[in-house]
Amino acid sequence: MTTLIAGDDVYAIAEELFTAMVDGESGTVSQWFGDVPAWQVPVVAWVDLHGGWAGRASVTTERATADDLARALLQMGADEPVLEEDLHDAFGEVANVVGGNVKALLPTQGTLGLPQVADHDPGLPGSVLVTEVVLDWRGRPLVLRVRGAA
């Protein structure tokens, strides 16, 4: 069951998300080439999927990138400070959209948990990595992962 979600599908979800919600134009994300730098100040957002297929969709990046993503989603100025609440709302919504689209790919529809945002990935005990996609957005990496119950 875990092979239902392909990296190409997650990449397509990300392209649509950034086109429709973040940048308003296509072609703003691409595949990241090379190693992902070690996170200095990471931010992780995730949603859990429940039902016939259980798992988690998550997005990880640097805090500065998450702040810029929040500014874009909330239509804030480039120098406007991002409050913690705004970061959680915006970055959590990115994970929520990814998770909702992953759920739509499944043969049976379940439910999504509420988006969570933290400075580390708490893991999902008993799960396996289904797919990982590393995006390049404005020259900075974002890692999208889908984990499924083993």
Rank of each mutant, 00 (worst) to 15 (best):
L129Q: 07
L69K: 08
A6R: 14
G100W: 06
G126V: 04
T131L: 06
M21C: 15
G7F: 07
A54L: 15
T111F: 01
H120N: 01
V36K: 09
V98F: 13
V41D: 13
L73G: 04
S127K: 12
A149D: 13
L142K: 06
R138P: 08
Q116H: 07
Q40M: 12
V133L: 12
W32T: 03
S58R: 14
R140S: 15
T19I: 07
F91V: 03
G52A: 15
P115H: 04
W46H: 06
L124E: 05
K103L: 13
D86T: 03
A149M: 13
R147C: 10
V44I: 08
V134M: 04
N101G: 06
H88Y: 03
V97S: 11
V130C: 13
V128I: 04
G110Q: 15
G148Q: 09
L114P: 05
R147H: 12
P115W: 07
L49F: 12
L144Q: 08
G77Q: 01
D79G: 03
V117S: 00
W39G: 11
R63Q: 07
T131E: 10
A72M: 11
E15Q: 12
G100V: 08
R138K: 11
V94E: 08
L87N: 01
L4P: 09
G55M: 10
V146L: 08
G113R: 09
D89C: 02
V59Q: 10
A38M: 15
L144T: 09
G27I: 13
A149Q: 14
V143W: 06
L69T: 08
P122F: 00
G51Q: 10
L49P: 07
G99H: 06
A14V: 12
S26F: 14
V117Y: 00
A72H: 10
Q31T: 05
L142P: 02
K103R: 14
A54G: 14
G126L: 03
L87K: 01
R56A: 14
L4I: 09
W46K: 07
V36E: 06
Q40N: 15
W46N: 07
D86P: 02
A118Y: 01
D79L: 02
P42L: 03
W137V: 11
T111N: 02
R71S: 08
T28C: 15
P141F: 05
E93K: 02
T108C: 08
V134T: 10
D136P: 04
A14N: 13
L124Q: 06
V117T: 03
L142S: 08
L105P: 02
F91E: 03
D48H: 06
E93H: 02
A66W: 08
V102M: 15
V10A: 12
W39D: 12
R140L: 13
Q116A: 11
T19N: 09
G7Q: 07
V22E: 13
S30A: 10
V134S: 04
L83I: 05
A66S: 07
G51E: 08
F33P: 00
V117G: 00
L114A: 11
